[in-house]
Amino acid sequence: MTNADNHNDPSKTGRPGDIMTNLMGYIDTRIDLIRLEIQNKMKAGFVGILHATMLGFTAFMALIFLNVFLGLLLNDLLDSRFWGFGIITAFYLILFLIFFFGLDKKTFQGLADKTFENTIYKNDKTAK
């Protein structure tokens, strides 16, 4: 065998093994990177949900106490023990009826379309 024959023989140079080792290392690294990205997205989602829950809870509590305050204030202004709470209840009942009978889901669908436009497929649409 000549020197030129050794150069063309892959079993003598070891290059295909090196390429396979590098390829497997690359694949392992990509898998680890994808796992890390998923973990980061899950952490960000958890933080977002926890933050939204806490904001919603505090807003709900503020609304409850505001309504109690308004009911007591109206009771004092009307010199009554119950008419203030009745007025607040009637307000929310009217608001409920307006939402239930007066507004169609299409009204909210337009708002949702405008709000969530270009969120999920943002990268695909900007590439075009």
Rank of each mutant, 00 (worst) to 15 (best):
L66T: 09
T21C: 08
N22T: 03
L63S: 11
R15W: 12
S11F: 15
N75M: 00
I64T: 03
T58S: 03
A62I: 12
F82K: 07
M42I: 10
L73T: 04
H51D: 07
G56I: 03
A59W: 00
D32I: 15
F82S: 10
I31Y: 04
R30H: 02
V47W: 00
D76Y: 12
R35P: 15
D32W: 15
M42E: 11
T13R: 13
N40L: 05
M42Q: 10
K12P: 06
G25W: 09
Q39L: 06
M61T: 09
L77W: 12
D32N: 15
L33T: 15
D79F: 08
D18G: 15
M42L: 14
R15A: 14
E37R: 11
T29L: 08
M20C: 06
D28A: 14
D76S: 15
L74H: 02
N75L: 00
A59L: 03
G14V: 13
Q39D: 14
K12W: 13
T13V: 10
A44G: 00
F46E: 11
I64F: 06
K41C: 01
T58D: 06
A44P: 10
I38N: 07
I19Y: 06
G56H: 11
M61N: 02
I38C: 09
L70C: 02
P16A: 08
I34W: 13
N22Q: 07
M42C: 07
F69V: 00
T58Q: 03
T53V: 07
D79A: 09
A52R: 05
V68E: 05
R15V: 15
L55T: 12
L50G: 04
T21V: 11
A59I: 14
I64H: 05
T21H: 04
S80I: 08
T21K: 13
H51A: 09
N75D: 06
L36W: 01
L77S: 00
K41R: 01
N40T: 08
L78A: 01
G48A: 13
L70V: 06
N40A: 04
